[in-house]
């Protein structure tokens, strides 16, 4: 019972984090703060996916133990079957590994664009940029 409650509580907390970061990206005027909340949004989504792949009785990461670079001995079928019963879901992790690196690539691009904006307009706050550039 208490385990179940804690389980739902973790999910709820992660989703609340997503909510707060979405709101912050939309509302806060400072570009750096927008970017910080953007990274938090990404992180929360990663952790949410990993959380969805975790089962309460799992004790192993999705890596077969006992491997070595030289003279490796592959596990037998029964060992692997026993291993499957105690591991987490690898598929969310597969998606996220590349997503993290691409997230950084996108983020670098955002950073460079912000640097250009700062040099062009002398400010990083979006409301001020609007005043400086004279747009509506």
């Amino acid at each position: 019972m208490i385990e179940e409650l804690l389980w739902y509580y973790i999910g709820f907390t992660i989703l609340l984090t997503i909510g707060f970061s979405i709101y912050g990206i939309a509302v806060r005027p400072h570009l750096v703060k927008k970017m910080a909340l953007f990274t938090i949004l990404g992180d929360a989504v990663y952790v949410l996916l990993v959380y969805l792949g975790y089962t309460l009785n799992s004790t192993n990461p999705p890596v077969i133990p006992g491997g070595s670079l030289e003279n490796p001995v592959f596990s037998s079928k029964t060992d692997i079957q026993r291993f499957i019963g105690s591991t987490v879901d690898p598929i969310p992790q597969v998606f996220i590994v590349t997503a993290i690196v691409i997230g950084l690539a996108v983020f670098l691009l955002l950073a460079i664009v912000s640097l250009r904006i700062a040099r062009e307009y002398g400010t990083l706050i979006t409301t001020k940029i609007r005043e400086v550039s004279g747009d509506e």
Binding site: G11, F12, L15, L16, T17, I18, G19, F20, I22, Y23, G24
Partner: peptide
């Protein structure tokens, strides 16, 4: 309120 509503909706 707004962030909590977003989070609750997702939940």
């Amino acid at each position: 309120v707004i962030p909590i509503v977003i989070g609750l909706g997702l939940f």
